[in-house]
Each structure stands twice: as structure tokens, then as C-alpha cells.
Write a protein that binds this DNA or RNA. Structure first.
Lengths: 350, 350
DNA sequence: ATTTAGCACTCTCACCACGAGAGTGCAAAA
DNA sequence: TTTTGCACTCTCGTGGTGAGAGTGCTAAAT
């Protein structure tokens, strides 16, 4: 093989060819041959020339061929180059934008909103979609209520962020009277309303310290109950998912064993959550292609994610999961705009 | 063909053979031939005799053969006879019973409990499992709370049945003061606490009638708000599902197209709900075999359901979905006992 | 120095034939 | 009524074959 400089090899012409090849392959999933490219690009080159170029691209690790007499297929690095440098994102038509805006009606509780977001996203992209629940750090307590269930069991209702309701059941050492509960409720609401849950937890710890000296009966009851109410920490992070059956249509995943492993990992949630977390630190759309994700089950998949934010703070992540051979230029802007619209839907809930 | 009476044909010997054949087929999914049966029953008959008997059973519609030189396979009617008359249910070992009891911890909210029930059921049976949420008819209001969100928007919290919390957002014609809300809350709690939701709805309608004459300002506000709070009726019936990936292992459903249709109908929920409703009227385990269900997507599936009850009232249904060739004698008692345990878990929540 | 034409080569895939294996149904014997 | 014997049928795995697609290389053309 003759030695050439990179700039020589990755010139504009080869990039045009490469881009065309990737687009072809994304379209119909078949390895692309030199004849096809000669026909469908307007470079006016013979198949032989194109073969030479493709051989170079293969040497660079951008293409590979399944076997000698098949055409060529992009590698992971090939896709990476494609999405990073060659891809021209399509504009969304207003119809789709309107559709998303309509579905993401802010007048529903958080979980429904996330569910709706996910199903809309999966329908529009025709892929599987995930949306993490907003992380609880930004949560501020609006109101708190105790309600006796039976002896020694109390239902705690926490209203956070205006419309999200968490309820927890706590076991108490003894039975409290209705008026004790009422007083504790008043005291705690006055003391904690408007504050962030984390701040409240810290304050409770401090109060517990101080209480050793100052034994005000009422305060003691209240703080003890508050401690129990808030102790079972964060709701562990979680996501909702929709449209995973869309993945059953894609030929690359026709192996039912692989598909099962993939679906199982969706149910398990652990791996997917780890992956999504990687996307929560930086703004904007992020793409994991094939093995880049680091999880075996996702080897044949790409994941396109974007964090969504409220008041400039990143609250969670959403994204789609599809075959590596997905229509990136169509999917990326959809994920992007959906994240933004989810952010503004959450914002208008305040 | 010689004419024989039914009693002649369906004698004990043929039933033993038939039962053995079904058990064989359930075990390994292969059509069963005369040789196999001759070997594995202790009837001491030659394959030829067994062939004659099998031909009779085929005439009766209990068996069929995929092709001339395969063995035989039970038909839907065959399975029906098998589960109705021949099946001897196995006893559950105490370990499994204990496991179910442990997982169905009453100290969690309804939805979690149902989720847990479903996943436990699917793990033990290694099939897909559904559990409907308890129907809301039995719901009695324990407590009601209004909480202002923003101008003209109020969050309503309903506590029903001790631990289930429903929250709804209502839009009001004007903004109410804190004290108006408080008074309305007190009034409504006093009037409606302990009553069933349906009864409350009826009473609200009556009150609206009466109100035309008697214009007590406070009452009017309260009833108007109550009307809005309760108007968006029943939460439509719903179910949780678990373990659908278990179905991806069964050979009968290896056709990915069918599987997709099946999964889609799980997501759609409509068909499955209709089916489950058929089981809510009668006590005890009910079995739908193959086409009996009436839904095309379930043609290759059987569904084993049982209603669960609290205080003798049927509250919902649970069940498993698997291939027609499922281990009925193992699955049936599991479904049965799970329904009972779910009932008693719900019962001990009071 | 590139590009192209020509050509031999390789690999897949659909098709077909073929034989082994499993199981049947039927007629005649037990 | 049951069994033996036997011809028959159907599936399934194997191997061969040829068409089709695409490649790489060499030599000619630009």
C-alpha cells in the first residue's frame, strides 16, 4: 500500500462519498457497493475509482465489509465521524413541533407528563424512548400533612414543587392524639415550608442535636416525626419508557435472544440509568453509538439523549434508543426540541 | 369407520393415554408419537393399538397432527378437557407460599403492592403476569384537602381507603381566599368523610339542585368545588404487568411479528382489560385457552386468571399469560394462592 | 499521476435433489 | 381386540450448483 498523508486521503471527495454511503446504508440497511455509489453521487467517477477510495476509508477504520463480495458498512468510528462532522440536521416542520407542544400539556402531574413525553417521543421517532423523572434535588417543600391511619401508623403527605405529591407511611413509638398531630403539622409547616428537602434534612439533624437540652414537648414530637418522614431519603432515580416494541421491527435486532436481553435491561433499569447519567452533566444532545455505551446489550444500538432543564438547572434526561443505523439527522432535532419543550412545560408549572 | 358410542371411545384407557400425551407435549413441545406413549405409560399396549386410539381421539377433536408423519398435539378442545377433568393440581411447597407472603407486604401503597404482586407472580411462574388495580367502587373517602396552587388553580387531595391518595387539579372561576378554602374543606370533610365516592357524587348532584333556593355562600362555594373535584369520575380501570420478556423464550412465539403484536396489545391494554373483566364476575380460577379468548393476538396463548377479594367483595383480577402449552398444574395453584394472598394483604391494610 | 476497463476471484443465497428418520394407516395374522 | 408387518408420507439436514453481487488487481487510457 502506498503511503499517503491523511489530508490526502480524507479529502472532500472521499468525505462526500463516505457521507453518501452512510446515508444509503441508513436508508436501506444493505451494504453499499461501488456501483450504487457511482450511480447515485454526481461525482462522475467510475466504480473502480470508488473502490479505491473505499479501500482507503476501510484502512482508516471508517468502513468495513461483512464479507468479500458484499458492499461496505460504516463502523462505529464511521458513524462517529458522520454524526460529528458530516451530518446536516433536517429542520422540523411546524406540524411536528405543534404536536409535541400539544401533547406536553403542563396541566398534569409529573409522572403523567413524563409518560406522555416518552410516548410522544417514541411515536414520532418510531424508536424506543426514555425519560428520567426530574431529579429531586430542586425539590422544595410546599406543604406537609400528617394523617393517622391506625395505632402507631401515620400517613405523611408531602407536597413538593406545587404539584408533586409524595406519601409515606411511618411507624411511631406511640399513638399520638389528633391535636398533637395538628400542632406538629402547624409547627413543621411554619418551619419548613418553602425550603428544599435537602436543607430540611440538614436542619432536622441540627434540631435533634439541640433537643437534648431544650425539652419542649411539642417540638420534640414534631421533630421526631419529621425525622421519620424525611429519613427514607431520595426516591431513587427512575425513568419511564415507551415504544420499546418499535425495536422489534428493526432487522438488526431480529435475533430474539439479543432482543430479550435488551428488554430485560430496560426492565432492570440499572444499566440504562448509568448511561443516562453520563448525559446529565453537559448541555445539549449527546450520542452514544454502538459499543461506545460500554454495555454489551447495547452493542447494536445507538442512544441519542438530551438533558432537560428548568430555570437553567438540568433536571433530568430524555432520549431515544434505536439501532446504530438510525436516521440521526431526523432523530437528533426531535430529541433536542422535545427536551426543550419538556423543560418549558415544567417551567410553566410553577 | 365403525360407529361406536362415546362412552366406548372415551373410556378410562383412552383418557389415561390422552392425559399422558398432553403432559408429554407440555413438557417438551414436540408432537407425541405412538412409540413414545407405548414406552412411557404402563398400559402395556403396542404402538399400533395406541395409534388406533389416537385416531379416535383425533376424530373427537381432541388431538390433531401437524402433518402425516409427526406425532399428535392437543387441540384447544383437548386442552379444555385436560384442564377441566384430567388435571391433578400439584401442591405448592411451603417455600413458595412463604415467598409470596413475604413479597406481598401490606405496608406499601396500592400501586407498589400491585407491581410487586405482578413481578412476583411472573417470576414464580416464569410467564407474563397482569394485576388489575382494585376497582374504585369500594372506595370510601377518608379525608379531603384543598391546596391553592396559583390563581384559579387548586390542588385537591383525596385520601381514600386509608392509604390510597388521589390528587387532582381543578380550575376555578375565581380565586378563593385561604380561609374560604379552609372552611370549604372543613364543611366537606364533615359531610362526606367515610362515605363511598359514588354516594358522594350522587349527594353532590342533589345538593346542586337544592342550592338554587338556599343560597348559603359558604355551602355554595364548597359544593361547587366538590363538584369539580369529583367530576372527573373513576380512574379508568387499569393494570400493571410484569415479566413479558418471559414470553420471548417460548418457542411457539418465536415469530417476532406475532410477538410484537402481542406486546403491542399489552401496551394498548384494551383487549387484555376486556378479557380480564370476564373473569371478575365469578369466583375462582378461570382459564382461557388459545382462541377461546376471542382475540387474535392471543391465539397461541392461554390466560389463567383469578379475581381477588376483600371482605368477600371482588376487587380486581390477576393472572398470567403464557403459551397454550403451559404447565397448568403448576401455574393454576400459584395464581390461586397469589390472588388469595393479595386479598388478605389488602384486607390487613384496613 | 489518476482514472478507468477488464477480468478473475470470492462469497452469499436460493434452489434442488437426496436420504435418513419418524410416524402414520391399513391389512392380515394372532 | 390386539399386534405384526409394511408401504407410504412428511420433515429436515446435507451437499451440490449456478446466478448475482461486489471485490481487488493489473494494465491501458487520460
Amino acid at each position: 500500500m502506498t503511503r499517503k498523508t491523511d489530508s490526502h486521503i480524507l479529502n472532500e471527495r472521499s468525505l462526500i462519498l463516505f457521507k453518501s454511503l452512510v446515508e444509503h446504508f441508513i436508508q436501506d440497511g444493505q451494504p453499499v457497493g461501488s456501483r450504487t455509489l457511482a450511480r447515485d453521487t454526481n461525482l462522475d467517477l467510475s466504480p473502480a475509482t470508488i473502490r479505491n477510495i473505499m479501500a482507503d476509508l476501510e484502512d482508516l477504520g471508517l468502513l468495513s465489509s461483512p464479507h468479500t463480495s458484499a458492499g461496505r458498512v460504516p463502523t462505529i468510528q464511521g458513524y462517529r465521524l458522520f454524526v460529528d462532522s458530516l451530518l446536516r440536521v433536517t429542520n422540523l416542520d411546524h406540524e411536528q413541533i405543534e404536536r409535541i407542544r400539544n401533547e406536553l400539556n403542563p396541566d398534569q402531574d409529573i409522572r403523567n407528563l413524563m409518560q406522555k413525553t416518552s410516548s410522544t417521543l417514541s411515536e414520532i421517532t418510531r424508536l424506543a424512548s426514555v425519560v428520567t423523572l426530574p431529579r429531586s434535588e430542586g425539590q422544595s417543600l410546599q406543604h406537609l400533612e400528617f394523617m393517622p391511619l391506625s395505632d402507631n401508623r401515620i400517613l405523611v403527605i408531602l407536597v413538593v414543587n406545587d404539584r408533586e405529591i409524595q406519601n409515606r407511611i411511618i411507624d411511631t413509638a406511640r399513638t399520638y392524639t389528633q391535636s398533637e398531630l395538628q400542632q406538629a403539622t402547624n409547627y413543621l409547616n411554619e418551619k419548613f415550608a418553602g425550603k428544599h428537602l435537602n436543607a430540611i434534612r440538614e436542619e432536622i439533624i441540627k434540631e435533634l442535636e439541640r433537643m437534648k437540652d431544650n425539652v419542649n414537648q411539642l417540638m420534640q414530637i414534631a421533630i421526631e416525626m419529621a425525622q421519620k418522614a424525611f429519613e427514607n431519603g431520595e426516591q431513587s432515580s427512575d425513568y419511564v419508557m415507551a415504544g420499546h416494541t418499535n425495536l422489534m421491527d428493526v432487522a438488526e435486532l431480529s435475533d430474539i435472544e439479543k432482543l430479550k436481553k435488551l428488554f430485560d435491561s430496560f426492565n432492570q433499569k440499572r444499566d440504562i440509568l448509568h448511561l443516562l447519567e453520563q448525559s446529565i452533566h453537559a448541555r445539549g444532545v449527546k450520542i452514544f453509538i454502538g459499543e461506545e455505551s460500554g454495555y454489551d446489550v447495547l452493542d447494536d444500538c445507538s442512544i441519542v439523549t438530551s438533558p432537560y432543564e428548568v430555570d437553567g438547572r438540568i433536571m433530568g434526561v430524555l432520549g431515544v434508543i434505536g439501532p446504530t443505523r438510525m436516521e440521526y439527522q431526523r432523530v437528533i432535532p426531535i430529541v433536542d426540541i422535545t427536551a426543550k419543550m419538556l423543560g418549558s412545560a415544567l417551567n410553566s408549572q410553577h
